[in-house]
């Protein structure tokens, strides 16, 4: 049962990360940079670096989750990333910023719906991380 849950969570999160990467990489990176900048958190040099790097990181995470390599480390990284995203989105929503969520490309406003979706993703990723570490404790050679 735990194995199946691990597999399902891995697959779901892998698809989410792969789709997030695809939706960002298919459009000019400067559009994504503008969306990140709208959050008003980072200086411009950091915005531009993040806009170039983040889609590739998401792609790598998606592939690694799908293949299952270094699962504990990858699941932990995905959880940290999603927690940061969720925190930033929550902060912006609380400040009343009317901006794009930019989670899956452009054209989706930051809203309660996007926050709920990200919250579910955070919980799934944390669950995956916990399961991956537990699995490693019980059967270290298989992870």
């Amino acid at each position: 049962m735990r194995r199946w849950l691990l597999l399902v969570l891995r697959a779901v999160l892998a698809v989410v990360f792969l789709y997030a990467a695809y939706s960002k990489l298919r459009q000019p990176w400067l559009l994504f940079a503008m969306a990140i900048d709208a959050y008003r958190i980072l200086p411009q040099w950091a915005v531009m670096t993040l806009a170039r790097a983040l889609p590739w990181c998401e792609l790598a995470l998606g592939i690694l989750l799908l293949t299952g390599f270094w699962l504990r480390q990858v699941a932990l990284t995905a959880s940290l990333l999603l927690v940061v995203f969720f925190g930033v989105m929550l902060r912006s929503y609380a400040k009343g910023l009317e901006i794009d969520c930019a989670c899956f490309g452009l054209g989706e406003a930051l809203s309660v719906k996007t926050l709920l979706r990200d919250g579910v993703l955070v919980m799934s990723s944390v669950a995956l991380t916990v399961l991956a570490f537990r699995e490693a404790r019980y059967a270290p050679t298989q992870i």
Partner: peptide, 19 residues
């Protein structure tokens, strides 16, 4: 068509238009 929402930073917009 490229939709862009929010108070876009001019410098980033300028770079995009130049691109």
């Amino acid at each position: 068509h490229y939709p862009v929402s929010g108070a876009v930073n001019y410098d980033l917009l300028r770079r995009f238009l130049d691109q």
